[in-house]
Write a protein that binds this DNA or RNA. Structure first.
Lengths: 168, 168
DNA sequence: CACGCTACTGAGACTCAGTCTCAGCGTGCG
DNA sequence: CGCACGCTGAGACTGAGTCTCAGTAGCGTG
């Protein structure tokens, strides 16, 4: 059984648990999400489905994404832009993101000492963590070699998040 | 000289550098931002100014916030909701956020070992960081004592960011 | 088979943060 | 004075995301 079908099955099971059904639209979305992209936007998905001449409305896309998030199969993340991105979760691999502000590339990483340190901080603050989200913005190796600099330094240096956003 | 006026002065200097002026509207916004709130939303600011019967249009608010961000006096941050929040920067203290998903409270912290570890990760990935942003979502001490749990656990546990968002 | 129930869908209206445009204002300078 | 320039407010616009509602698909029962 190809990996994608396993995900479709997982979603069907999740839906069944709450008396909901795996419709063609939902299955097609799961296939699309798990077959190809990793980080994606809702609108991108809408467009991709349209390309494949599967007409799935925006409402259904958002509704299905919500279900997938509830099921734990998909996560909503901020990648430094002013709207959500989504990523599928395979296994239970938590990870964080390095985001290149010149080419937009996103590098994932997982670092146990970093996670551990966060747990220690929470403990010290008597805070019970459920989830965290770390984005590091900067310039990736390839862009640095190409002599790229993080946009106008005066804009990026002190800016909160929106470095990517500036690229539009 | 009260601290707020020092900030107004800093902003005037920044504006002067690029041939721009500190108008009454801009000064009023800086005073409001630095006098009271720490994390705020643009609309909140709009509302507060209206309350004080200082009519400042939305356009001016956003324009001024953009200038303040460029000047480094204000940062745009994501706090787990689907729009930006802003925070003023006093001194140059970088910090991260613990966000309570039951009461919405935001706790700031700074941890040098954590920062150091991030630098090491970047080095290993040959990534040149310019900025980072870490939110840890969970339940604060007060809420935990009150027996609060992070909303419906099935919704929050695996969710990316939007725990706060669910509270609306 | 007919009926009715329920979950689901698409179309499009709506919301809301944020952006843009444009006419008008104020100040400084020749 | 009269122009130039930066600034402002009003309101139109944008775009992601949500909501509503009428219609449909699929199933279970009589």
């Amino acid at each position: 059984m190809p990996a994608v079908e396993r995900e479709v099955g997982r979603f069907r099971d999740f839906l069944a648990l709450q008396g909901q059904k795996l419709t063609n639209e939902r299955a097609a979305l799961v296939r699309e999400i798990f077959a190809t992209h990793y980080h994606f936007e809702a609108d991108e998905l809408l467009f991709k489905m349209k390309e494949k001449s599967l007409k799935i409305s925006r409402a259904t896309i958002y509704r299905t994404l919500e279900l997938l998030v509830k099921s734990g199969m998909v996560r909503r993340v901020h990648l430094g832009e002013d709207h959500y991105h989504y990523e599928h979760v395979t296994g239970n691999s938590h990870h964080d993101h390095l985001i290149c502000t010149t080419c937009g590339n996103v590098i994932e990483f997982h670092d146990e000492p970093l996670e551990q340190r966060q747990r220690e901080i929470c403990e010290r603050k008597k805070f019970t963590p459920t989830f965290h989200n770390l984005q590091i913005l900067g310039v990736c190796d390839a862009c640095r070699r190409r002599g790229e600099h993080p946009n106008a330094p005066d804009r990026v240096q002190m800016i909160g998040l929106p470095a990517l956003h500036l690229r539009k």
